[in-house]
Design a binder for these strands. Structure first.
Lengths: 179, 179
DNA sequence: TGCTCTACGTTTAGATCTAAACGTACACGC
DNA sequence: GCGTGTACGTTTAGATCTAAACGTAGAGCA
């Protein structure tokens, strides 16, 4: 029998509950970040799992969608170097190499020697790859759009602003490592 | 030579840029969710990677921290069943079993037959495990707290509220799958 | 011209997760 | 009392990722 992560019959765990538990067990624990970082992580997982379900029906997986999307979005001639793809998808170049190998095996992309100097390899969409991404992207983004409808227009705008600000700030703090 | 994900020398990619690219390439693409889901994902990865660095110095990994934390937080007698742990940490029971096996090999936890009926197995903290989590939790949470200082008190409260609301709402929409 | 150094893509080894198959203890109905 | 089903933890197979080792093409420079 399948063993998917059972839907919590208990009241869904809450970030506030976790912070409270730490305070109860270890008064003074610095829990200020928990109610931001934890829901953020849970939401990421919820969206990722849901996206996985949508993609399974579309006959594509998240890694391949990620790859085809970034190339498609870059516009004509729909070709990007491995390194460029790695930087834009937040995975290592090694992983990109493997993803490209898989997608190539399925006939979705093609590797061509980069015309520009350097020893770059361009990853290019085939017609099949182009058709597949065209077919999937609306399904994925449409579903995600429906998932955020619980927030009002104003709330979504506020959330977008706060996430953007936090992202930019955390990036800087993480970049200059100290403290 | 190492091949870590190079810090983007280019301007850091932005969610707004991705949405704009889709609109340019495919006018009408439903991109409303991108500026929420994408930064949310990126922030999750930033926090996770940073946490990994902090933990490496503390001599523990994220999976083990997750395990020890949930047991420690449950309070005396610091023992939880495998199933309970799986539900609270959002990984499958199989993964918990493997995590426990690793932690047990390192002497951080102990498996004891559950006294209560059923065939439950309780995972219990050893003294070493208790000491390790006690030593790590402030480091991790303290670092995270410092990472969210770029937001004002009010902004953090607003973000907490919005994330909480969205989380609850998305959970419901995902639970009753349809639409 | 020839040497060296750097950038880049690929390959490999190892870790960890999920999904599914198991094996078994206990509860429950007959 | 006894079979049957269900809950639970573990094991296994397979997928995918990261980190590191490679191999090589060009750029820069003497």
């Amino acid at each position: 029998m399948a063993e998917t992560n059972p839907a919590p019959r208990d009241p869904a765990p809450s970030a506030a509950g976790i912070a409270a538990a730490w305070q109860r067990e270890r008064p003074g624990t610095p829990t200020e970040s928990i109610e931001i970082v934890t829901p953020l992580w849970w939401l990421g997982k919820l969206f990722a799992d849901d996206r996985g379900r949508v993609l399974r029906e579309a006959g594509i997986d998240a890694a391949t969608l990620d790859l085809l999307s970034v190339v498609r979005r870059s516009g004509p001639p729909y070709a990007l170097s491995t390194r460029e793809i790695a930087a834009r998808t937040l995975v290592t170049a090694g992983a990109v190499s493997q993803r490209v190998a898989r997608a190539e095996r399925e006939g979705l992309v093609r590797r061509t020697p980069g015309t520009t100097g350097r020893r770059t390899v361009l990853v290019e969409l085939t017609d099949a790859g182009h058709a597949l991404i065209e077919r999937s992207v609306d399904a994925v983004l449409g579903r995600e759009a429906s998932l955020v409808q619980g927030l009002t227009e104003q709330e979504r705008a506020a959330l977008t602003g706060l996430l953007g600000k936090l992202l930019e700030d955390v990036r800087q703090r993480v970049a200059r490592r100290p403290e």
